[in-house]
Every structure is written in structure tokens, then in C-alpha cells.
Write a protein that binds this DNA or RNA. Structure first.
Lengths: 190, 190
DNA sequence: AGTGGAAAGTTTCCACTGGAAAGATAGCGC
DNA sequence: GCGCTATCTTTCCAGTGGAAACTTTCCACT
């Protein structure tokens, strides 16, 4: 585990962390593999062994992201509003992951490390939508509506499009948004 | 105007179109300036004269995008639901523009060709939100709610995250989403 | 009419990138 | 204690964005 001169011992995690930081600083494509390798103190081809290529590194970021994401959503419990808040919280706290996850042209979305975790997250959203839906025929519509609002708010907030982004607490604001749009649908398990 | 051997006569527009096509094929960063220049049949430094650098080209894409965007939203008239539908329509019909516009780290958002057009679009959204808001104190919240939903749906649809994306007509679906979430607020100019 | 820029495009150059190939090192199973 | 294999290095290559210096064309103005 401790870094011998030759075998880093921990390169995979270090590269992932370096990538996450670089993404946070310059966006999902605003950095180079070689720069990360330099930061990690290894040669520029060392990461190849762990990730194959740059796309592989981004795939690993997406995979880790969807895992964390699914866990976050699952932990929010059954209350649908809190699932939406958890969605936004994840985006804000793990913004580097988030900015990769929903940009599938950057990585390999069919990778076996990615697809199951993504499905797990989708299942939480679907079940939340079902709970909120006014009638079964509109389950999907309701899911997409709530998903869109949480996702759109997160994306706008992260991109800085909301001019007052600095002043607001995104989680609190998200809760207010959801209440405004979906509060009237809430018929708590009648 | 006709292409003499030396002076292309039309390079700016041709490069913009080539960029839009490349973005559509490989995302906002999945192409090279040199490749576009080759497609246009000019040397790889010719575009410098029109755009300065690659960021300048993306800035021009964003500027054109926000212009078109503002025009589209303004043309939707006062009906708020139709503004949301127009938002989604723009994203679908001008997806290359859209994918750049909300990724400000890719271009220069403060550019004088960008900022005013963006402000124009924001004004339409704000006024729509105001019309929909249940009370003045919630004007901003309502605007952000509707904006988030339209934006989120557009982004999810474009990214392919909605598994059934192929089957649905995004504009119709957007109208249904807005009705579900905001229909109960509609108090037509009482 | 013809000339002096300015505008538009070219060639050449450089540091940097992602990746391929081949070789060095070191820890681990037996 | 020995070879195997995972990990990391060095070297190499084509492609990239951009700077610099040059060429060609067009247009405004006398």
C-alpha cells in the first residue's frame, strides 16, 4: 500500500481523485491525461494500465458516480420530495461525477460497471414517480416531470445559469421548487 | 461572394456550419479545428482570422444560439406553456447550439455578442414565470421551477437518458409535463 | 487609373496531447 | 528462491491548437 519507488500502489484511486479535481476546475474535458499523471508523480502512460485510455478513466468516473448516486437516492427513503432533494444534493456535492454521468458521449455507457448502477438509480426515480402519480396511466409522465425538474435545476445551478446561485442553498430551494410544482399531487398513501 | 481560389468569401458561415455538424456528431468538444478547416477546404489557420481561436468559434456558436433562442421564446407569445414547449423545441431543433450555450466553460459568456441575447431570453422566461406565479413573492421560484423542468427535460432527452426517447414527440411530451406540474396554477389573467 | 493598406488565407514552426510498443521492476504464488 | 504477471517507464508517432511571418486579393481614396 505505501508507495514504493516503482509501484505506486494506489494509482487508480489517485488518478480518479485527480480527474475529479480537474473536472471540477475545468470541466469534464478541460484537462489532459498527462497533466493528471504528472500530478500523481507517474509517467504519462502509467494510467493506461488501470483505465485503458482516457475514455476508460471517464467511464470509471461515471461508474463510481452512478454507484454513489444510486446509494444517495436509495437513502432518501420513500418520500418523493426528499428523493428530488437528494438528486440535487448529489449533483452539488459530487458535481464532477454528475457532469460526466449525463454526458454519455464522454464515456462508455454500456460498460458493465456503469449500466447496473444507472439502472438502480432509475428504479428509485420510477418508484418515486409512481408514488406521486395521480393515476397509473400517468406514472411515467409524473416520473419524467419530477426527474426533469430536479435534473434541470441541478444542471442550471451547476452551470451558473441561475444568476442568484451564490445566495441560495440549493437543497432548500429544490425542496421549495418541488413543493410548488408537485405539492398539489401529494396524496400521502391514502 | 463566389469562392475565388484564395479568398473563400464565406468562411465564417461555413466554419460555423461545420462546427454545428461536428458538435451534433461528436459533442461540443469531440472535434478539432483542423478537421473543420479541412472540410471547408482551407488551411488550418484560416479560421483564426474570423474567430481568434477555438474558444472564439464556440463563442460564436453560443452567440448565434442565444439569438435564435431569444427569438424562438419571444415568438411563443404570452402563453406560458407554449414558452416551455418552445424551449424544448429549440433544444431539439438546434441541439448543437443548445449543448454549447449552457456549458459556459467552453466559451466566453461575457462576450458582447452573447450576453445581451442571453439576457433577452432570460427576460422572456421571467415574464412567463411572473404570469404563472401564485403570488408576487413567488415569482422567482415559479420561474425557476418552470425553467428547470423545461431545461431538464430537454437535457435528458438530448442525452438519451430517457429510455423511450425514440418513441415520443418531445414537444407534445413537454406540453403534457408542463400541464401536469403547473396546470393547477393557471389562472388566466383573472 | 493605380496604389497603399487592410482583410483573408498560407506556410512554417513549436510545445503539447493521446496512444502504441517494447522494456524495466518488483511483489507474489508455488 | 524462482518464474509470472501486474505495474510502471522510456521511447516514439501522428495529430492538435496556436504564434509568427509571409502572400494574395480586394477596396478606398487620390
Amino acid at each position: 500500500m505505501e508507495p514504493s519507488a516503482y509501484h505506486h500502489g494506489n494509482l487508480r484511486r489517485v488518478m480518479l481523485d485527480a480527474a475529479l479535481q480537474a473536472i471540477g476546475e475545468s470541466g469534464p474535458t478541460g484537462w489532459s491525461l498527462r497533466e493528471l499523471a504528472r500530478r500523481a508523480g507517474v509517467s504519462h502512460t502509467a494510467p493506461t494500465h488501470h483505465f485503458g485510455d482516457k475514455t476508460g478513466l471517464l467511464t470509471a468516473v461515471a461508474a463510481e458516480g452512478f454507484d454513489l448516486f444510486a446509494a444517495t437516492l436509495e437513502a432518501a427513503g420513500g418520500d418523493f420530495r426528499e428523493v428530488g432533494v437528494a438528486y440535487v444534493r448529489f449533483a452539488v456535492r459530487h458535481r464532477s461525477h454528475f457532469q460526466v454521468m449525463f454526458r454519455p458521449e464522454l464515456y462508455r455507457p454500456a460498460d458493465p460497471a456503469v449500466a447496473p448502477a444507472r439502472a438502480r438509480a432509475a428504479a428509485v426515480l420510477s418508484s418515486g414517480g409512481r408514488a406521486l402519480s395521480p393515476d397509473p396511466a400517468r406514472d411515467r409522465l409524473t416520473t419524467v416531470a419530477a426527474w426533469s425538474m430536479a435534473h434541470g435545476f441541478a444542471d442550471l445551478w451547476l452551470s451558473g445559469a441561475l444568476a442568484d446561485a451564490a445566495e441560495i442553498d440549493p437543497e432548500t430551494y429544490a425542496r421549495d421548487l418541488i413543493t410548488l410544482a408537485f405539492g398539489h399531487l401529494h396524496h400521502p398513501k391514502a
